[in-house]
Design a protein around this nucleic acid. Structure first.
Lengths: 327, 327
DNA sequence: CTGAAAGCGCTTACAG
DNA sequence: CTGAAAGCGCTTACAG
């Protein structure tokens, strides 16, 4: 079908080895005259190198694999953008595979695809692997890193925000504005992230000797619907004067349900959301957020994945409070 | 490093060919007893097949390539979800590459990566290729299809919405509600999509003998900011009583700026947005939308890409009006 | 500066 | 049911 190195060699009257050297720019291993001749013929033949052959013989790959959640929250976009930007800088391509949040089968399939392809590295975005799949990944000897999942107590290399700080700072922000009864909503406390955030929240409350009622903390899966439901549970006369939403979407759910109840935001109810994606800016009132550095997670994660010396180190990306209309 | 077929062959006391047959499930070409023995050894050796070698020898690939815009509007998420769902059904993996909206260099790089990898097919999502890059794609002999870009007047295989109908129906919806002065906002009229939508809009107006002032049609790039700017241009006392936003985000821009001006939506100003992503439902008032079937674009596009007999046919996915609070 | 040769890990007619 | 052999398209010591 398409032209091979041999076709070029024949047409140019040289050996395949020479063609390979020219096309691979192995400088010093060919003369200018043959180089230009070979290049011209290659172009005229619409030659494209066969990546499979190259990868097979060189035993290395120029692609990095990314596994992301299918039911992805909207923040992963930014992470992926960051990954791509950094990958392009290094001349790598990115192969992306979706895996359900809690589907071990899909996780395994995605992992195997990447391992069979012997990718240069694997980035796992916002997914917690089962123990079995984690073992599979580790046995593969391929460098890997978790993004936006500081799970297993940082035993595994990851790039993420400090979720304890997220919970703590969101709460501090509200306490400093005079709130004493603060709710925390749509957080998944079965995972490490949710647990950390709740811990940070509790610490901030305790520090000011503020009590925390169990019903102020409402679990969920970070979704818009969980935000709505949580606000419905608080009811038209909520006991709390402020609510922290586990994600921008969850906070928007809280906001919309509050408006439905004719509760004034921020006058009667203050809202802080976590993530700080563009969603927080396009709703009215705009949401005060604990903003995560998602793009940096992508770029930094990719850099560290490629840097052999830093393979085991975990790192936090910075967070910051952006004060807007909802507090 | 990792085990090969040879290692297994040796350990099992059979030839590499037999191992290959067992692991490839070439039924009838091996006995049950050898099969189980080979499989056990393969598992114990953590064997993973080398995709490069397989692709090299079989001369075919199990991956489909997707090229998407870096500055992606939020709808492409759904398209990509659809692509992945369909790809998984067929046991294919997906390699995704970002290419800037108007960066011929990045486009070319993305295309070459895919062509060198000899992927099974290429899906171009919401991007218009330059003529040169289109030629590159066509010369590659790899099946391809454009998603959500009905460009070059349907000469190229694509799956998209009927943009003329989008413009027409959005306008009809407003006319039927009594509007006679209707604006169209943030549309990129340098592209085929924008041109078609404007044509549909004009046709609907003309059909009712309604005049169209040039300043009612404001161009843009479908962004939130373009929506804001357009509304600012209309001013606090807009001449039009209804505005069609080129995307959900653009419409939200219009909405927010209108609220800023204390213009009541929909009472004083009706708004229709195009796309119908979840954004339209999370803002208040919720937006009436012309909803596109993005997920289907992904699944259908992938199906047709893989179906040799349908390679050249373009097709529209359905659109529908979803009436909400903004009209 | 260039070529012949070996080999990357696999698949598949061909012969038995 | 199984093995020996050829070959996919490329790269790279080795020898000149």
């Amino acid at each position: 079908m398409s032209a091979t190195i041999k076709d070029i060699a024949e047409a140019a009257g040289v050996s395949a080895a020479t063609v390979s050297r020219v096309l691979g720019n192995k400088e010093g291993f060919y003369s200018q005259s043959t180089a230009t001749r070979v290049r011209k013929i290659a172009a005229s033949l619409d030659y494209e190198k066969n990546t499979s052959a190259v990868e097979l013989v060189t035993q290395k790959s120029h692609v990095i694999g990314v596994i992301i959640s299918a039911t992805k929250t909207n923040f992963s976009d930014k992470i992926i953008e960051g990954i791509h930007a950094e990958a392009i800088r290094h001349g790598l391509s990115v192969i992306m595979l979706y895996a359900g949040q809690n589907d071990p089968q899909l996780q395994e399939q995605a992992l195997r695809t990447l391992i069979e392809r012997a990718v240069k590295g694997i980035l796992v975005v916002a997914i917690e692997l089962t123990d079995k799949n984690l073992a599979l990944l580790q046995d593969s000897q391929i460098p890997y890193r978790f993004l936006s999942t500081s799970y297993n107590s940082n035993k595994l290399p990851s790039i993420a925000s400090d979720d304890y700080q997220i919970g703590y700072q969101a709460t501090r922000h509200l306490i400093e504005r005079g709130h004493r009864k603060i709710g925390l909503v749509a957080m998944d406390t079965s995972g490490h992230i949710g647990q950390q955030r709740v811990a940070g929240y509790r610490a901030a409350m305790i520090q000011e000797a503020l009590p925390v009622k169990d019903e102020w903390v409402k679990v969920g899966m970070y979704t818009y619907e969980d935000g709505i439901k949580a606000m419905q549970a608080f009811g038209q006369q909520p006991e709390v004067t402020a609510i922290i939403g586990a994600s921008d979407l969850a906070a928007i759910g809280v906001l919309n349900q509050a408006m439905q109840y004719d509760i004034q935001v921020p006058k009667q109810l203050a809202i802080v959301s976590i993530d700080g994606t563009y969603l927080a800016r396009i709703v009215r009132p705009q949401l005060t957020t604990v903003t995560q550095a998602f793009y940096e997670m992508g770029t930094l994660g990719t850099q560290m994945l490629l840097d052999q010396t830093q393979q085991t180190i975990s790192q936090f990306t910075p967070i910051k409070i952006e004060t807007r209309q909802s507090t």
